[in-house]
């Protein structure tokens, strides 16, 4: 049985899993609550930009696929809220923090989705980056988080492939369609690289989270993977990466790439991105519009209980 920090550290270092009722350091609990709930919020807010395009999908099949993808994201949010609750927080408090703007969610969803090609770029790049972030989390030391990430990862590769296939199709199309695909890549590439967080030299939580086996790879390691993974996929369908400094480095066996605009990163993070306000407003409206449904469900459940008892 774990009772002290030393026992906890040794247990985690031996790759054993922590379960909800086990003793854990306060910092570990707080870090997980913050990370898992932010992750849940990101899945939920992530539905907004894509959900907007369901009615404008170019075919019935594309519409059905996008609908299924967005429904998966709702599921991801729910798996994650469920995991967060095992740490002793109330779901309603987490939701309130999202709605009031107190809690963070992934900045990537604060960029606008301007064309159908953006839906392709999001699946390919945003879900692609999410997969790179999430696969190591399947081995997270906290059991409920690890189990929900395993479910999520099983579903994500469909998301990435449906996005890439939109790009493939556009690149087989006419001049205007190819331009649309290239334009989407140009706008989504850098924000996707920002999804891995600040550069290692500026990352506050990294080393403790590594020790706790919440994090397995540094932000910069994962970002490098994203670059190496994406470049050949883009080349293969005739897309040009929007980075003049990008080139293969024989010595390192990786691509060198340009510097991220960190001012933009911190600015969007601080709430000044193109869509921060709109996303929260839409989320709040959806929540408020659903109030009567929640009330009616409770009234109905109460009435059934009374007639039974």
């Amino acid at each position: 049985m774990i009772q002290t920090v030393e026992q906890f550290d040794a247990y985690v270092a031996a790759e054993k899993k922590i379960e909800p009722k086990d003793w854990m350091p306060d910092g570990y609990r707080k870090t997980l609550i913050r990370q898992i709930s932010q992750h849940a919020h990101s899945e939920v807010v992530g539905m907004l930009p894509e959900g907007n395009w369901i009615t404008r999908a170019p075919s019935l099949q594309r519409k059905a696929i996008l609908l299924a993808k967005v429904q998966d994201e709702a599921g991801h949010g729910l798996y994650l809220y469920s995991a967060a609750e095992t740490l002793g927080v109330e779901r309603s408090d987490l939701v309130d923090d999202l709605l009031s703007g107190k809690a963070k969610y992934s900045s990537i969803f604060n960029y606008p989705v301007l064309t159908w090609a953006d839906i392709g770029a999001i699946g390919w790049l945003v879900d692609g980056a999410a997969i790179l972030n999430q696969v190591p989390l399947c081995r997270c030391s906290y059991g409920p988080y690890s189990r929900s990430m395993i479910r999520v990862c099983k579903e994500e590769s469909f998301h990435q492939r449906q996005g890439y296939s939109i790009m493939v199709e556009l690149m087989k199309g006419n001049e205007a369609q190819r331009e649309m695909a290239q334009d989407a890549l140009n706008r989504w590439w850098w924000p996707s690289l920002m999804m891995f967080g600040p550069s290692d030299k500026d990352s506050e939580h990294s080393s403790q989270n590594m020790k706790w086996k919440i994090k397995r790879f540094t932000n910069d390691e994962l970002r490098q993977r994203m670059v190496d993974m994406t470049v050949p996929q883009a080349e293969c369908i005739g897309l040009k990466m929007p980075d003049k400094e990008l080139k293969w480095n024989d010595e390192t066996g990786h691509h060198d790439f340009g510097e991220i605009d960190w001012d933009e990163f911190y600015n969007v993070l601080a709430g000044n991105g193109p869509c921060n306000e709109e996303r929260l407003a839409v989320r709040n409206k959806a929540h408020d519009d659903g109030a009567w449904v929640r009330e009616a469900a409770v009234a109905y459940a109460d009435k059934k209980k009374k007639t039974k008892g």
Binding site: E85, R91, S92, L99, A291, R294, E295, A297
Partner: peptide
């Protein structure tokens, strides 16, 4: 944003 405290039970 008012009534989230009215939590549905957990299953």
């Amino acid at each position: 944003m008012s009534d989230t405290k009215n939590n549905w039970p957990l299953w």
